[in-house]
Every structure is written in structure tokens, then in C-alpha cells.
């Protein structure tokens, strides 16, 4: 993943997977580069492995309540968790833990906001 554009790339990939239109259909709307298409396919495979509720609950249970260490952002480093947040049905009791971590960790909060911004923008483009 491109280090500078990773918010955009991740947000775009999440929107394509959420819209369930496939990479081919999305290619017409969003100008996807071959590397971005590969990245979306990789995320799609990772998402398929995330099908059990137990796996998702375990991911949420592992979210720390305190701030991440410098250069170790939970949102940036744990793509499975991001997939679970954006694409899976989250068990209600796990959400407060995520919100508490995001509020406690400025780095994750900033990165989450950027991914959410891109995700929303790309999802709107795909649904137009």
C-alpha cells in the first residue's frame, strides 16, 4: 500500500467491498490503478476469512482502551479489524470499546477519520 495515500486506498477499497459491485464494475466509476485492484482483491480475500462471529468478537476484545504506542497505530496496522469495523455486523457490546479507544488515542482517531472520509466519498461515487 502506498504510504502517503493509504487513507485513500483503504477507504476506496472498503467502499468497493461494501458496495459489492466487484472490482470490474468499480473500475468504470473509480479510476483504479492495477496495484489498487490487487490491493482490493487482497482485502476481499482477508474479508472472506473473517466470517465467524467468534473471530470478529475476538478482534474487538483485543482493542486496547489506552493510547497506541508511537508509530504503532491500531487502525493502520490491523487491517482485519478495519475490515470488521466497516464491513461486518458489529456485536453491539463491542462498539463502546472501539469508541473509547478512538477517543483515547489521537493517532487512531485521526487515521480513522481520514479513512471514514474517503470511504464515504467513494461510496457516494459508487452509488451515484
Amino acid at each position: 500500500m502506498n504510504k502517503e495515500n493509504w487513507h485513500l486506498e483503504l477507504g476506496q477499497a472498503l467502499a468497493v467491498l461494501k458496495a459489492k459491485r466487484g472490482v470490474e464494475a468499480a473500475r468504470e466509476v473509480l479510476s483504479l490503478s492495477p496495484s489498487q485492484e490487487n490491493y482490493i482483491n487482497e482485502l476481499s480475500q482477508a474479508f472472506k476469512r473473517l466470517h465467524t462471529k467468534a473471530t470478529i468478537s475476538a478482534l474487538f476484545a483485543d482493542i486496547p482502551l489506552h493510547m497506541c504506542r508511537v508509530n504503532q497505530s491500531l487502525i493502520r496496522d490491523n487491517v482485519e479489524l478495519v475490515l470488521a469495523i466497516f464491513l461486518c455486523e458489529i456485536p453491539g457490546k463491542d462498539c463502546p470499546r472501539l469508541l473509547k479507544h478512538l477517543n483515547s488515542c489521537f493517532h487512531c482517531e485521526e487515521e480513522f477519520a481520514e479513512v471514514l472520509r474517503e470511504y464515504h466519498k467513494q461510496l457516494q461515487l459508487l452509488s451515484d
Binding site: 462498539c95 463502546p96 472501539l98 482517531e109 472520509r117 464515504h120 466519498k121
Partner: peptide, 27 residues
């Protein structure tokens, strides 16, 4: 309060639109 703080951050401090915040996957 945690949810409200998070919404406040996204909407007021980070400048996301209301619809983007409303489309939050955990809320």
C-alpha cells in the same frame, strides 16, 4: 459520552460532513 465525543471530533474538529458521520459503521 464516548459516542458524543467521537461525533464531536469527527464533525467539529475534523470537518466531516453530517452524512459522513451518520454513515459511521459503528453507529
Amino acid at each position: 459520552i464516548e459516542r458524543d465525543i467521537h461525533i464531536f471530533y469527527l464533525y467539529k474538529m475534523n470537518g466531516l460532513s453530517q452524512t459522513a458521520v451518520a454513515g459511521h459503521p459503528c453507529m
